[in-house]
């Protein structure tokens, strides 16, 4: 029995190799069962939407659906733009622009949340960044909160006229989706 030690090593190797093989096999079998729950091809396919802005007069707002989410489009008045521009960054709980088209850590100035030459238009995903309710403020007689923008009735988050969080439990500014002006009165979201 001179090969006793060698046998033990061979057996260890076989056990480790066998178990490793089984573990990889199990993981690759589990993966489809995890992955099947992620958004499927049909959900991903609803990528972009075009919106005609011509009928939206100054001070009015519309809500459209993009990827199953409501998107707020507001034609802001000059006063609303002015109040949004005047706000200092230090007054904001979230200092990032949250603009899908700009890199992270871009400061949350009003200019960084709108498109140059179209500063009156604010386009945002209308979902409160706290727990996903739809904030009020789109129709004329809605409560617009302490900062004249939007107010989420669920847990009391107040957003300003640039959709930035000012008061309440929401951690982030309303998200600006990637979009572009295809003409002066038409945008394409996504």
């Amino acid at each position: 029995m001179t090969s006793h030690v060698d046998d033990a090593n061979r057996r260890d190797f076989l056990v480790v190799a066998g178990n490793a093989f089984a573990a990889v096999g199990a993981a690759s079998l589990i993966w489809p069962f995890v992955q099947q729950m992620n958004p499927d091809a049909s959900a991903k396919a609803m990528a972009s939407t075009e919106v005609d802005l011509a009928p939206v007069k100054e001070g009015q707002a519309i809500t459209i659906m993009w990827r199953g989410k409501p998107v707020f489009v507001r034609n802001r008045t000059k006063e609303e733009v002015a109040t949004a521009v005047e706000v200092k960054l230090t007054e904001l709980p979230d200092e990032e622009a949250r603009n899908g088209a700009l890199p992270e850590a871009t400061p949350a100035t009003d200019a960084n949340r709108t498109k140059q030459g179209h500063e009156n238009w604010i386009v945002m995903v209308g979902i409160c960044t706290h727990l996903g309710c739809i904030p009020k403020g789109q129709s004329m007689n809605d409560a617009k909160g302490d900062f004249g923008g939007w107010f989420c009735p669920c847990h009391g988050s107040h957003y300003d006229t640039s959709g930035r969080i000012r008061k309440g439990p929401a951690p982030r500014n309303l998200e600006v989706p990637p979009y572009e002006f295809v003409s002066d009165t038409k945008i394409k979201i996504g």
Partner: peptide, 23 residues
């Protein structure tokens, strides 16, 4: 808040989409 994108990934996995839906 702990790791950017982690929470969103979990929520979309639970939803099977970008919002609560029939799925």
């Amino acid at each position: 808040t702990i790791y950017t994108g982690l929470g969103t990934a979990i929520v979309e996995w639970l939803w099977g989409g970008y919002s609560v839906s029939g799925v």
